[in-house]
Design a protein around this nucleic acid. Structure first.
Lengths: 213, 213
DNA sequence: TATGGATCCATA
DNA sequence: TATGGATCCATA
């Protein structure tokens, strides 16, 4: 996969340009999404472009998650304290890592969005809440660009459709990353839809880290 | 239907409490949602509570829209200029009215949310964008409370699930209204799902108003 | 039961 | 084609 479009708010640019830990977090996210391939044995991500909305989305995230968790030690499903402690409703942040150097700690929250585009708005709002409550220091949203989403399940999140709303996060350290397939090829297998594509790899959850302490 | 939970940001309270036009807009929304009934000939809204997620949602909005449009002259599908003029992606605001008195004009945007809860986040963000660009002066979101949503299509928007995110709109004039059925009754018909419930009533669109000028 | 998601629909 | 929505799924 390749990164095709990136938008950083002014605040995010500052962090990434001037701080090594934030720079590292950004680089890890980019390296992880770039590591995704299709078909499984391929060295690049080729998408079957023979039919609009022909491919499912579930396997798309697998290799990226694997690299974030296994290579870079990010954690999955970090609950927001604001929701947990105040007994409010709401689920965890998708992917999370604390970068430390001496006594410095930088917390980065990432949402990998392949759900319905409306779901990307919830992700934005969740990350906004995390920033507002000072539970993360940088927010990142990863999603397909339009050109790729055209061949995935109808109405999945895509960079271009969320773009008009980027300005809502002005003043906050927010990064939006749009990725695309490396190539389009009508001869590669379609990515299966439904549960067929579910991976069984056990995920590296924040909860488990906490409990094992 | 009855209004069961209401949250107004400080800014919204000020507007509604101190300004007759804003007060009127709020009253019209409340009167309209309260006018919804089920079954069709009934005088109140009775929901079949015999099975979780048993009822569809489409017909729920019909009477409310009808009253807003026909009795109170609200318009449907008002495009945001920020999206239209700047050629950005994005659809219109669901319901809209300009209240005028002498040279005073108050613009109210309303989203009636019965889609997936994630869709309510998009509605929030769209209204935020409208406020930010000074295209509306007050934002309102109408949705079922949890107790009612339990008997509607799985995962529809509900007041309680959006509630933790209300604080994102702090500092903006925002009103959240949660409505509930008047009673629960396992003998009334289930509200049909799918296209069966579609009404054919032609809606009062902002576009048409503009074009008829 | 709670929550993020995946999928396909209806209409303009 | 574009966009909001409606519906049901998978997992904890």
């Amino acid at each position: 996969m390749k990164v095709e479009k990136v938008y950083m708010t002014k605040e995010a640019k500052e962090l990434v340009n001037k701080d090594n830990l934030f720079k590292q977090s950004y680089d890890e996210v980019v390296a992880s999404i770039c590591s995704a391939v299709w078909p499984m044995k391929s060295k690049t991500f080729k998408i079957n472009n023979s039919q609009k909305n022909g491919n499912g989305v579930v396997p798309v995230k697998e290799l990226c998650y694997a690299m974030l968790e296994d290579t870079y030690n990010w954690y999955r499903e970090k609950p927001l304290n604001v929701l947990k402690l105040e007994k409010k409703k709401g689920g965890p942040i998708d992917v999370y890592k604390e970068f430390t150097e001496n006594f410095d700690i930088k917390r980065v929250g990432l949402e990998f969005e392949t759900g319905n585009i409306s779901s990307a708005h919830r992700s934005m709002n969740k990350l906004l809440l995390g920033l507002k409550r000072n539970e993360i220091d940088l927010a990142v949203i990863l999603m397909p660009v339009y050109e790729l989403s055209y061949f995935l399940t109808d109405r999945v999140s895509n960079y271009e459709e969320l773009e008009p709303y980027f300005e809502i996060t002005e003043g906050k350290p927010f990064i939006y990353i749009g990725f695309n397939a490396d190539s389009f090829d009508s001869s590669v297998p379609l990515i299966p839809k439904g549960k067929d594509g579910m991976s069984k790899r056990s995920i590296k959850k924040w909860k488990d880290r906490i409990e094992n302490k």
